[in-house]
Every structure is written in C-alpha cells, then in structure tokens.
Design a protein around this nucleic acid. Structure first.
Lengths: 117, 117
DNA sequence: AATTAGGCACTCATTAAATAGTTAGCATGA
DNA sequence: TCATGCTAACTATTTAATGAGTGCCTAATT
C-alpha cells in the first residue's frame, strides 16, 4: 500500500466526503477491485488463502492479501491461525460481515433487475 | 473522459468482474467521487447545475458535468431544458433513481452504525 | 445603436495522484 | 525441497483536479 499525499486537493476532497457521510467511506472500501468478490467467496465457504485464490481466478496474491487485510481491519472478516503442520489460516465472516453481505444482496438484485449497463 | 486502454489486465479484470456480477458495475459507478452526493443533492431539491455546484462546495464544474452525464446515461436522473430567457436545465431523479437512493439510505445507516473507520 | 459585462452550462487539454498488476522472493515447518 | 501465506519494489493504468475557454443570452453602459 503506497502512501497518500496528504496535501493534495484530491486527498482533501476524499476526506471531506468521507467525513460528510459514512456511506462514502464504505463505498470507497467496497468498490476496490475484488473486494466484494472476496467477501462473497468467503461467505460461500472458501476459508483459506489458497481456496480464495483459486476461486477468484484472476486475482493476484498481492491484491488478495491486501483485501483480506482491509476486510479484517474493518471487522467484516476474522482471521484465525490453525496450528499444525504447514501453519494455515482461516478466514470467516463476522456478524457485521454477514449483515453487510445481506445488504449488498439487495443492492445486487437492484443492479441486476433495474440497471442496464 | 479519457480513453481506456483496452488491452490491459487492469481493464480485463474490471470487465470480468462487471460481467460476473452487476453489483460490481453499480459499485464502480457509485463510488466515483461525488457521485452519491450529486444524487442526494438532487433528491434534496437542487435541480439546477449552479444549485448543485453551490450545494456541493468543493466540486469542480468538470466533475459535476461528468457525474450528471453518467447518472443520466444510467437513467437515474432525467434532464429537461426549460425554455426561456437564459435557457436553463433541470435535473430530477427518475423512479429508478428514487429506488436506488432509498436502498443507499439503508446502506448508509449500516455504515454509520456498524462500521468504525 | 453598439459595446461591454456577466451568468449559465458546460468542454478541452494538461497535470497530479491513486489504484492495480507484475515479478521476485521470504519464512516456516513437515 | 515443497507448499502455504504472505511482502516488497516497481511499472502500468485509471481517476481526479486545474485552469482556461466556449456559445448563448440578457442587461447595463457609452
């Protein structure tokens, strides 16, 4: 994750909007590429890094790791280390994550039925 | 609006995700900076270009014009030309636009109550 | 009557900044 | 030595902002 330039109008406007309404913050998180796919893929039962990587065909390790970290930071998923042979990690949705993915389901239905792209 | 490079992985992945699920398309539209603010500002009764510009303090003409065009293309707002002295334009939400802004209201409540940023 | 000033609703060209992708590599333990 | 689950450095691409400028109209000034 590269540093942001804190003195730009670009950064200033983004911050202004995020403070004005939390929706902007959430949207800028969710709209990062692969973000919702990672969320849904975990929901569907892919709990391990390599699982997810296989499920999301074209994602790179780099981006997958970053997205997982972001989702964890926002407490939408939780991460646990399974002790053992090759140490494995497991990702799961939190209660918040489940709630969000249900909300997004509604938005998705709207997108599919009402929008034409 | 600058041209996209059609042969990049960047573009390819974006297209792949948009085809996979319409939610991705909608999110990438809505997450463009100022997009939801423009939508809500029209909803609150700001119908003219200059109104909107004043309401959304730091937006530039350029971006406002572009966002309005995008919202119109997706039939979330409609544009009418009021005949008269200085010819004026008027923007309004369509039925779809109203429905979307209600859905977003729900997401916004979630963002405000459940997420900590 | 002609010139000027000014608002509205934009567009265009350029530059700056943020985001995504690529390639390589690393630590751990079986 | 291999798989897992990553990280780092770099490049490519996309998105946002800036600043000037346009065409149309009206109202005021000279």
């Amino acid at each position: 994750m590269t540093e942001r330039k804190l003195s730009s109008t670009n950064f200033y406007n983004q911050s202004y909007l995020e403070e004005k309404c939390a929706l902007n913050e959430l949207l800028s998180l969710l709209s990062k590429r692969w973000m919702t796919e990672v969320l849904f893929s975990i929901e569907e039962g892919n709990t391990r890094f390599t699982n997810l990587k296989e499920d999301l065909e074209h994602i790179s390790d780099h981006i997958l790791a970053e997205r997982l970290k972001m989702l964890e930071q926002h407490e939408l998923i939780s991460k646990s280390y399974l002790p053992g042979n090759p140490p494995r990690t497991e990702y799961e949705l939190t209660a918040k994550g489940i709630e969000l993915s249900e909300l997004l389901g509604g938005v998705c239905t709207f997108a599919e039925n009402k929008m034409q792209f």
